[in-house]
Design a protein around this nucleic acid. Sequence first.
DNA 1: TGTACATCAGTGAACGCGCGTTCACTGATGTAC
DNA 2: TGTACATCAGTGAACGCGCGTTCACTGATGTAC
Lengths: 220, 220
Amino acid sequence: MAASTPHARVETEPPISRSARKARTRQRLIDAALALIGQGRSYTSLSLREITREAGVVPGAFYRHFRDLDELGLALVEMGGVTLRRLLREARRDGIPPTDMLRGSVLVYKRFVEQRSLVFRFIAAERGGGSRILRNAIRTEDGHFASEMAQDLRVLGVMPDLSSSALRMICGLVVTTMLNAASDILDVPSGQTVQEREMVENFVRQLRVIFIGARHWRED
Amino acid sequence: MAASTPHARVETEPPISRSARKARTRQRLIDAALALIGQGRSYTSLSLREITREAGVVPGAFYRHFRDLDELGLALVEMGGVTLRRLLREARRDGIPPTDMLRGSVLVYKRFVEQRSLVFRFIAAERGGGSRILRNAIRTEDGHFASEMAQDLRVLGVMPDLSSSALRMICGLVVTTMLNAASDILDVPSGQTVQEREMVENFVRQLRVIFIGARHWRED
DNA sequence: TGTACATCAGTGAACGCGCGTTCACTGATGTAC
DNA sequence: TGTACATCAGTGAACGCGCGTTCACTGATGTAC
């Protein structure tokens, strides 16, 4: 047990600065909340004590890092934003799948969501539901994501006839459709089941409708 | 206080059968949960005692009506399903707004959501988030709603070239877009504000994209 | 480099509180005769 | 219609438990000289 007390030093590790240690504990609290979400709990129903227990610190230590649970929630939202921006960055780097572009993108997205299931579970849940503060923070984050996506499409010369505002609006629709799909992706039993294939197919077709609509869009 | 005890009889009311009284208490529990949701609470974070307190019964009485909170949640989902079916029924009865069809429908929907804000707040929140049981129940309910909408459109002869499966898929997209919008509708500060108009405009344009996409849809 | 003091992340104990669940009970409603 | 008994929705008290928050504390890290 001595090894887990805060001041014990694991022999193989070098000394750690106070600020680094503090940042590490902060991250442990965030990870603990995500781990509990991963066990099927919803963020709104987590207690401060559960989180500190999972993180391996005493309840009172929580207050060295966050004023209350909402503030930890905002940190999770920020992490969600970072995750979404990474999705775009990877898309930019890897380019569009050469054949069957839409289905390819959907499968890439599906894998991305599954690899970061905890963050997406959190976003999908609190987007519609949690406290007003979290909901608005997530809405803002989603909005930024949609705007960035619109700018990327503009740069790539996709749908050059659309006005910026129309492109932005369409990306907003794509984003909400993606986030709805994230919830479906996480709930479908994994493995090459019929359900899974139907879910992917449905998602692909819905995006196709949106892009067909975008191609034929005319300003009023 | 005597008037609020279960056996007291308000003089002006006729005697009530035992089963009617039980149904009334059950409804009070449901209404109490909705009332608390209306105060900005999320269903997942409600406690059994809060609900019974709000309903004006003793905590133990809860068990005469529901096994646990999930079972009450399922009753709320069912109520949500009834609400959605009523929306379709009214649409059938009143027909499509004669001019500016889409914007007209959106405004009708907006008023509908605002009038039943508690139910929609619940659905919007638990759809992505609550317990797995509730999420699946809501998914099922939404699916039925989409199927019914598809059938209505078929009967009305809207988009007669689409296969039933394509029509169903498109209605699914419309429904998720509607439910996302419900969350926006409930969060936007009411009154004739700029924000409100922009939100409605965005919603209208997104639906327009979907319907344009549907008109140009070709089976693979 | 060494020493004396300051800082502060995390501890551990304590507090009062609301929680879910149980149980024997009460008394109005329902039923059999 | 009247009477005797059964039913059961709701009561009220009790239980053990985990909760959020507070506080004086400890001791490793950081700093001034």
